[in-house]
Amino acid sequence: MKHVDAMRTAFQALSEIAIIGQLADAALRQTLPAELSVAGFGVLNHFARLGIEGESPTKLARAFQVTKGGMTYTLQQLEGLKYVKIEADPADARAKIVRLTNAGVRAREDAIRRVDRGMRALIDALGADAFADAMPFLVKLRQVLDAARD
């Protein structure tokens, strides 16, 4: 493939991924309970997906590519809902550590149950194998983009 064609294809692929992300967020927003934002669900999912015991607000902000102020706002909302607990870091009392609570685990599980119908519709429309086949490329793309931000 010519360089120009490869650039065009790569740009088109990233554009499609961005649009898919926007559409998925909009669908998720409609499905989540009113008190839980997409950003809040993302934090709950981050803890569960990676099996994290606790993480600093700064590390969370970096992981989500948002400002510390933006992450603080999301964490305050989650703390108000009792989905996370923010406490002094035992290793550095000046720092904070965020921990997922049992209520946060249940809220994430409830949110996932709420999206089940939409996910089933996607699987029915596209096939489970199509999702499985896409995973190696998507994981590698995420890893390359993630490494490039450091």
Rank of each mutant, 00 (worst) to 15 (best):
Ala134Thr: 05
Leu75Ile: 11
Phe41Ile: 05
Ala13Ile: 09
Val98Pro: 02
Ala48Val: 11
Ser56Gln: 09
Ala107Cys: 10
Leu126Asp: 11
Ser37Thr: 14
Lys68Cys: 10
Arg113Gly: 13
Leu50His: 06
Thr31Tyr: 04
Met71Tyr: 03
Ala93Cys: 09
His3Lys: 10
Ala26His: 03
Asp5Gln: 09
Phe47Thr: 03
Ala6Glu: 12
Ile20Gln: 11
Ala103Thr: 09
Leu14Met: 12
Lys140Ser: 08
Leu78Ala: 04
Ile112His: 10
Arg113Leu: 14
Leu14Gly: 09
Ile17Gly: 06
Pro136Ala: 07
Ile97Leu: 08
Ala95Pro: 02
His46Met: 07
Leu50Ser: 13
Lys140Ala: 08
Gln12Asp: 15
Ile97Tyr: 04
Val66Phe: 12
Val139Gly: 04
Met119Lys: 02
Pro90Val: 12
Arg113Ala: 15
Leu44Tyr: 09
Ala95Ser: 12
Arg62Trp: 02
Ala27Val: 02
Ser15His: 09
Leu81His: 02
Arg114Leu: 12
Gly70Ser: 08
Thr58Trp: 10
Asp110Ala: 11
Leu122Ile: 10
Leu32Trp: 13
Asp129His: 05
Ala88Leu: 07
Ala91Glu: 14
Asp110Asn: 08
Thr31Cys: 07
Leu75Asp: 00
Asp116Gln: 12
Leu44Thr: 05
Asp133Thr: 07
Asp150Arg: 02
Asn45Arg: 14
Asp89Val: 04
Arg149Glu: 15
Ala147Ile: 00
Ile97Asn: 00
Gly118Arg: 01
Met1Glu: 13
Thr58Cys: 10
Ser56Gly: 15
Val38Thr: 13
Ala91Phe: 14
Glu87Phe: 05
Arg142Pro: 00
Met119Tyr: 14
Gly42Ile: 02
Lys85Leu: 14
Thr74Ile: 12
Ile19Asn: 06
His3Cys: 06
Gly127Trp: 03
Ala27Ile: 07
Phe131His: 01
Phe131Asp: 09
Val38Gln: 06
Arg49Gln: 12
Ala24Leu: 04
Glu55Tyr: 03
Arg99Ala: 11
His3Asn: 13
Gly127Arg: 01
Leu28Phe: 07
Arg99Asn: 11
Ile17Trp: 08
Ala88Trp: 11
Glu55Ser: 11
Leu23Ala: 12
Ala34Leu: 14
Gly51Asp: 06
Val66Arg: 00
Ala63Glu: 10
Leu138Trp: 10
Asp5Pro: 01
Leu126Tyr: 13
Arg8Ile: 13
Gly54Thr: 12
Val139Ile: 14
Thr31Pro: 02
Ala121Pro: 03
Asp5Thr: 07
Arg62Gln: 06
Ala48Phe: 05
Asp25Asn: 03
Gly69Asp: 13
Asp89Met: 09
Leu44Arg: 02
Gln30Gly: 06
Gly42Val: 05
Val4Arg: 11
Ile52Pro: 09
Ile112Lys: 13
Ala10Leu: 15
Lys68Gln: 14
Pro33His: 07
Ala128Lys: 01
Thr9Phe: 13
Asp133Phe: 05
Val84Trp: 09
Met71Ala: 00
Arg114Pro: 05
Glu55Met: 15
Leu145Thr: 04
Leu100Ser: 02
Glu35Lys: 01
Gly42Asn: 04
Met135Trp: 15
Gly127Leu: 01
Ala95Met: 10
Gln143Phe: 10
Thr9His: 12
Gln77Glu: 15
Pro136Ile: 04
Thr58Gln: 15
Asp89Cys: 07
Lys96Asn: 15
Ala121Ile: 02
Arg108Pro: 04
Gly51Thr: 06
Gly40Ser: 03
Leu50Thr: 04
Gly104Asp: 11
Gly80Asp: 14
Asp5Gly: 04
